[in-house]
Simulated scan of single mutants.
Amino acid sequence: MEYIRVTKDNLEKEHICCAISNNKDVQVSSKKAWLADRFDEGLVFLKSVERGKCFIEYIPAENAWVPFNADGYMYIDCLWVSGSFKGHGYSTELVDACIEDSKDKGKKGLCILAAAKKKPFLADPKFLKYKGFTVCDEADNGIQLWYLPFGNEAEKPGFRECAKHPHIEDKGYVLYYTSQCPFNAKYVPVLEQTAKENGIPFRAIHIASREEAQNAPTPITNYALFHDGEYITNEQMNDKKFLKLVNG
């Protein structure tokens, strides 16, 4: 597979989303704006030449929008291979490229979020285990931090206390989200409108800075839905899924 590294210079012309083909879509423009601000912080976005169906996005852990302590590591924001691209070893190629680049940059290892069983928008734990990753921390809601150290002396990364025990005091539905996931630009307003029309207590909190993200009450900051203080899911929802959840 041939890969392209997305940079500030080619960001506008490159297709960067796993499911949205229209580069003028608000979801794509919001994601590209978020990416543009991250490149100077060391973010790497490596994608196949075949649109956005196969890519890896990673950043030095100190600059990751995740509440953990992982100084010296590289954090994988997203590893995505979809559709007909699955089963050809492209995930391995992308992770191997990340490993090589991270070693060249003097990093201690890699880390990534997952769960014991595959969850939407999270890495597959079976693949991570195959690549040599192991679990180094786990939050109360089952979200795990996996890591791949490059040496035996590398200390284990870990969640901050605010994320290790995901809980908030607010009643009703509360959604924490960032602009990292392109879908949020479309579907967060959909949830806000759906909640308003149906009299559902709902509040969306847009995490707009790295500092806010690193102190969030959840390991997953790009989309985390709470109800009456308890974490529910990281799965992006449309109006139908949300109403089904609410009505049980």
Results as ranks from 00 to 15, higher is better:
residue 133 F to D: 03
residue 134 T to W: 08
residue 134 T to G: 13
residue 138 E to F: 07
residue 141 N to G: 06
residue 142 G to I: 03
residue 143 I to A: 00
residue 143 I to N: 01
residue 145 L to S: 07
residue 145 L to I: 01
residue 146 W to M: 07
residue 147 Y to A: 02
residue 149 P to H: 00
residue 149 P to R: 00
residue 150 F to K: 01
residue 153 E to V: 01
residue 153 E to H: 08
residue 153 E to Q: 13
residue 156 K to P: 01
residue 159 F to Q: 09
residue 159 F to I: 00
residue 160 R to I: 08
residue 161 E to A: 15
residue 161 E to K: 15
residue 162 C to G: 02
residue 162 C to E: 11
residue 164 K to T: 07
residue 164 K to P: 08
residue 165 H to R: 12
residue 167 H to D: 11
residue 168 I to V: 14
residue 170 D to M: 14
residue 170 D to N: 15
residue 172 G to M: 14
residue 172 G to W: 08
residue 174 V to H: 14
residue 177 Y to S: 00
residue 178 T to C: 05
residue 180 Q to G: 12
residue 180 Q to P: 03
residue 181 C to E: 07
residue 183 F to Y: 10
residue 183 F to N: 13
residue 184 N to K: 04
residue 185 A to S: 14
residue 186 K to E: 10
residue 188 V to I: 12
residue 189 P to T: 13
residue 190 V to L: 08
residue 191 L to I: 12
residue 192 E to W: 05
residue 197 E to P: 04
residue 197 E to I: 02
residue 198 N to E: 11
residue 199 G to F: 12
residue 200 I to W: 03
residue 200 I to L: 06
residue 201 P to G: 09
residue 202 F to P: 09
residue 205 I to A: 02
residue 206 H to D: 08
residue 206 H to N: 13
residue 207 I to M: 01
residue 208 A to N: 14
residue 209 S to L: 10
residue 210 R to G: 00
residue 210 R to K: 15
residue 211 E to H: 09
residue 212 E to N: 00
residue 216 A to Q: 10
residue 216 A to N: 06
residue 218 T to D: 02
residue 219 P to G: 08
residue 219 P to N: 07
residue 220 I to L: 04
residue 221 T to H: 03
residue 222 N to F: 11
residue 222 N to L: 01
